[in-house]
């Protein structure tokens, strides 16, 4: 791992003012993410995992502490288009074809027509959707839509990929497949990935680092460095090593969770 952190948060706080009084979504969150790491955020709902990712993306404003992305403030990083963001749902525009959806960020960022064309074809290839560029999103399955939305996030080649429960709405079989694909893609591109999930096997299977969080207030309870090898076939999930990490994650979740 490189020593310069790509994402660095120190004592990050975020308090939402609601009608029922202030809610601490994030409390004293400190974390370093190095270049090329695959970091999963796991925890029950309300633990602030999505909120943290949104802070990194400058979609939420922290109320305390410091947060840098590529050494800049999140807002500057957003303006510099430092990251691609994948949401819970594919969120493809129904009036654009798959290819034109992927082209959307390229149009906004002012790439030349020729380069748009070339990049769209390249990322379609990358997510195994070559030949589907002319289809409309609503003509594809949920898994294909989500792959297209990943392609959209990859198209402008930012170094950071932020993914907020991207496979949460998909069934288990499709999810397994996409997990495998995502690992391959990560290996090929060497991007830094922040990945929010509520599935323990998914987190363990994918990550080099697992951040376990707990709610009220949202905070980090454990950070687990994975000892699994880079090369991970799907059946690695049956190895004792895998199960041990999963066990530790489960313990972390249980410790941080008051079952009220």
């Amino acid at each position: 791992m490189t020593q310069v952190p790509v994402i660095e948060s120190k004592n990050l706080d975020l308090t939402f003012e609601t009608a029922d009084g202030p809610v601490a979504a994030l409390k004293d969150v400190s974390l370093q993410i190095g270049a090329g790491e695959f970091v999963s955020f796991i925890g029950p709902s309300g633990c602030g995992k999505t909120t943290f990712l949104r802070c990194v993306a400058a979609l939420e404003e922290p109320t305390g502490g410091s947060l840098t992305v590529n050494g800049m403030s999140p807002e500057e990083a957003r303006k510099a288009r430092a990251y691609g963001y994948v949401f819970q749902a594919a969120g493809l525009y129904p009036w654009r074809t798959i290819a034109k959806n992927i082209r959307l960020p390229l149009e906004i960022m002012g790439f030349s027509r020729a380069e748009q064309e070339e990049r769209v074809n390249r990322v379609l290839e990358l997510v195994d959707l070559a030949g589907f560029g002319g289809k409309y999103p609503w003509q594809l399955s949920g898994g294909m839509q989500q792959r297209a939305s990943i392609a959209r996030a990859l198209s402008f080649d930012a170094d950071i990929l932020l993914m907020d429960e991207p496979f949460g709405a998909l069934d288990e079989i499709v999810r397994d497949h996409l997990n495998e694909e995502l690992l391959k893609l990560w290996a090929r591109t060497g991007k830094t990935i922040g990945f929010v999930t509520h599935s323990i096997p998914e987190a363990v299977y994918l990550s080099t680092k697992i951040v376990v969080m707990s709610p009220r207030p949202g905070r980090i309870t454990d950070v687990i460095e994975s000892t699994l090898p880079q090369e991970r076939p799907l059946d690695i999930r049956d190895t004792p090593e895998f199960l041990e990490i999963a066990h530790r994650v489960r313990d972390g979740l249980r410790a941080g969770h008051a079952y009220d």
Binding site: A58, L59, R78, R81, F87, Q88, G91, P105, I108
Partner: peptide, 18 residues
């Protein structure tokens, strides 16, 4: 538009007119 669609445009640092 959904919050997600607007957020997406924001992650691209899109201008008002875009």
């Amino acid at each position: 538009t959904t919050q997600m669609q607007r957020d997406l445009m924001k992650t691209y640092a899109a201008s008002y007119w875009q």
